[in-house]
C-alpha cells in the first residue's frame, strides 16, 4: 500500500543460533530503538520477538540450521514485525493457542510452554502462513513512536 510516511525499516538476517538471537535483540532494543520507543514498549517488543525467534531456532530449525530474516518497521501504529524462516512448518499449519495451564503445586510447576502465551498476550494482528516452503510470521506491537 502506498504511503506518504517515510519507511523506517530495519532488516536483520541471522543464523538459527541462540547467541545470534541474543545479539540481534541487543542490536535492536539496546541501540536502534533506544530513544524511539518508550522503555516499556521496547520491553514488550523484545519479549515477543525473543519468543518468536527462539521458537524458530528450537523447533523450525530443530533438524538442521538455517537463516532467519527479521524485518521491523516503526510506524504510527507501533512496531510491525515480519519474521521468515525456511525451517519446518508449524505443526498442523497453525500457531499454538498458548493457553497457560492452571498453576499446579511446586513439584509440577511448568518449566516451559510460556512462549506462545507471551506472544499472544503482547502482540496484535498475529498471523502465520506457509509460503513457498518458508514460514512467515507477522505481528504488531502497539507502541508510541517518539519523534526523532
Amino acid at each position: 500500500m502506498p504511503s506518504d510516511e517515510r519507511p523506517d525499516q530495519t532488516r536483520i538476517v541471522i543464523p538459527s543460533d541462540p547467541m545470534a538471537v541474543r545479539q540481534a535483540l541487543q542490536a535492536l532494543f539496546d541501540h536502534l530503538m533506544t530513544g524511539r520507543m518508550s522503555a516499556d514498549d521496547r520491553d514488550t517488543a523484545q519479549i515477543v520477538l525473543a519468543e518468536a525467534l527462539n521458537n524458530i531456532v528450537e523447533h523450525a530449525y530443530a533438524q538442521e540450521p538455517g537463516e532467519i530474516e527479521v524485518i521491523v518497521e516503526l510506524c504510527a501504529s507501533g512496531l510491525t514485525c515480519r519474521i521468515m524462516d525456511a525451517g519446518l512448518p508449524m505443526p498442523g499449519g497453525t500457531l499454538p493457542q498458548g493457553v497457560l495451564a492452571p498453576m499446579p503445586s511446586n513439584d509440577d510447576l511448568p518449566e516451559g510452554g510460556f512462549g506462545w502465551h507471551l506472544i499472544r498476550t503482547l502482540s496484535e494482528d498475529l498471523h502465520y502462513r506457509r509460503e513457498d516452503g518458508r514460514n512467515l510470521l507477522t505481528f504488531r506491537i502497539l507502541a508510541q513512536q517518539y519523534p526523532h
Binding site: 520491553d43 523484545q46 519468543e51 527462539n54 511448568p110 510460556f114
Partner: peptide, 12 residues
Amino acid sequence: FIDSSGLGAVVA
C-alpha cells in the same frame, strides 16, 4: 531481560 527459557531455568 528474561525470556521464557530463562524463566524456565529459574523455575527449574
